[in-house]
Design a protein around this nucleic acid. Structure first.
Lengths: 212, 212, 212, 212
DNA sequence: CATGAATGAGACTTCATTCAT
DNA sequence: AATGAATGAAGTCTCATTCAT
């Protein structure tokens, strides 16, 4: 109506910043709440309280609990990918050195760094179809990439002929669930086993599974 | 001691039967409800409704939702054990034939027969400390037994020297999560893959993991 | 119909005995439960359990919780009357010795012997109109008798002219609530005060209240 | 620290007012419900219905039934203290005029003004340990103050040597229970007796109990 | 007489979500 | 952009009482 709406720059910039900051606060708080309480026990109230925000503010930035969790988990899985599988698959298949242990160690490390969050993830996946879908999509990044890799290795003569799809799923299942079980159920207790033994065994099985 | 002890037979027997029948109805209904809705979405109301019972009757036989679920899951895990691992570990370690595929196929079969229930189990384990404990105890039956088996095989010279504890957990993780993922997330879709390929791959990896 | 119903003696006698025994068991059990849990928290289930009786049996002898409690309380109040006020009022008013301390000590003693029950009584009176009525009727026995006594004393010239009705209620209120407060709230703590000091003070106030 | 701290005045004031008004509504409604139904029969549902509030709103302001009741009762007991004992004990002990009758009349008046509430209080005290504690604490204000007073009077030579602790409790018991019995059980019926006779008798006994 | 399985009403409490300011 | 008061649905569990054997 007035001239106000025509010059958005100055004020708008500040607003946008403030908004981003608020969202960030909420995100950080949410992460902490999910880590501590898990998915289903986490409440919007707890998040806004920790974020020093009004309850209603939450709904300015997220549709609901599902929604925040989706953002958080996307972020974490991205980290997981970038630190474990990513570096691994970017190498040429013929590489003389076996990088599997590195990838597995990295994965176990990332899991260990966010214990509570993985439990929450498991819960959330089972509680919300939306999150389940999102997670399965992210997860497929891993299995698909590994499937491709297995094909490459096979073609390069480094691996024996395999039922790539099933093998990929089986190996991912092994590593993933071993990691989950460790940080969610402490079974086997990671503190007792130590990352070295775990890495060694998992990488060994992995390698034997595909090698000639 | 009371006046009751005189004619316990006739009436008492009938009563006991009726009571057992009611409990069975509730158990069956509960199982169905858990299969359809999962753990957390299942309500006592839904169970009693399906069982054609008054709401209060439920509490005559179970302390709460946790409690029924505990009974159901114990039963299912027992079945799982008896049909898959049980027959396997009762054979002598030197047996010329590899029984691993049989055990794995049996396990995948039992999982497939109770799809919804496994999802509920996963949920319940994450939601209730009591059930988590119960499940971990039951699960330990498997890992422990396999650990022992690995020792036997090693001693018999059929397997190479292994970090039995970690290997057992890794292999169990692989098979278990492969099975879970199949029936909970249809990832990979069991219908597409087929039990034969799954069995073949899992048994193969398992065997290679331990053989000389 | 047959001849059976015509000779009720032998069998009937046994039945009656057994019935009486059962009722007694329930009564004893009820008393214990009320003492331990109070009125409202006491359940028929707890009573029958303690009485080693079927749940339904309770309803053969009592209409409901109110009903048993009525019987119990009548009994206790009778005891209270017989041991405290009764002996007191049966003496001639001119009696040279002041019997008030004896009556009060007796009353405090009876209260102390049934602690839990008095709390239950208070609860019950507030919870059930029937019991309230019953209790008020029993209680009136006390106040009425004292009112009469005050009249006698006045006539005998032992007491000054008094508003007998109100004085009786005031004195009863004092002793009664002092006793209740002691065993229900431990305020003042009977163990600390001791029955002698309590008796002395109450009897003293009582005596001064009516003496010339 | 959040973004909230900029314009706290205008909107905030209105909101606070509205909130206070809602709480007040609930408090008033609760009081009415407790007066009519007593403590245990009162339900949160009845309170919110009378307050024209959603059920959940109640829990925005009170933790539960116990909690509201605590607030109400604190308020009423404060009133009781300020109108009866307070003015009384603030006078110098030597005061030529006996103020006991005024204090007692005031107390009986306050009791009469909140009949239902006192019944509820009695119930609540017996039903909830928290309220019992709260009430005993408030009540101790009375007995302690009177104990001190008795000491002062004794020192001033206005009262005879006494077992102050027990006497205080006995006199408080008398007045308190007389008042309770009147408004809870109508025994004796206050309408019949009238406040003047009650006051006269209670004050008379009180005075005689302590005077030389 | 005694039994004990079955009933079902009812109160409590939590929280995601909305919306007026 | 932020606030925070208000909403109301939903599920849990207990127990007095009945009634068919």
């Amino acid at each position: 109506m007035g001239a106000a709406s025509e010059e958005p720059t100055a004020v708008d910039g500040k607003r946008r910043q403030r908004a981003a900051a608020t969202k960030e606060q909420l995100l950080v708080a949410a992460r902490e709440v999910f880590e501590e309480r898990g998915y289903q026990a986490a409440t919007v109230g707890a998040i806004t309280k920790l974020a020093n925000t009004a309850h209603g503010t939450f709904y300015l930035y997220f549709k609901n609990k599902e929604d925040v969790f989706g953002e958080i988990i996307t972020e974490v899985v991205r980290e997981l990918y970038e630190r474990s599988l990513g570096p691994f698959v970017s190498l040429p298949p013929e590489g003389g050195v076996n990088r599997t242990p590195d990838a597995i160690r990295a994965l176990l490390t990332v899991f260990a760094e966010h214990r509570g969050l993985w439990r929450a993830l498991l819960e959330a996946v089972l509680q919300s179809a939306t999150i389940e879908q999102r997670w399965l999509d992210l997860r497929r990044t891993f299995t698909d990439r590994i499937m491709i890799r297995l094909g490459e290795l096979e073609a390069a003569g480094t691996a024996r002929p395999l039922d790539a799809e099933v093998v990929a799923h089986a190996l991912v299942a092994m590593v993933e669930w071993f990691a989950f079980a460790g940080c969610v159920f402490e079974e086997p207790d990671p503190a007792t086993i130590g990352i070295d033994r775990s890495t060694a065994v998992l990488a060994d099985i992995w390698t034997r599974a595909i090698s000639l």
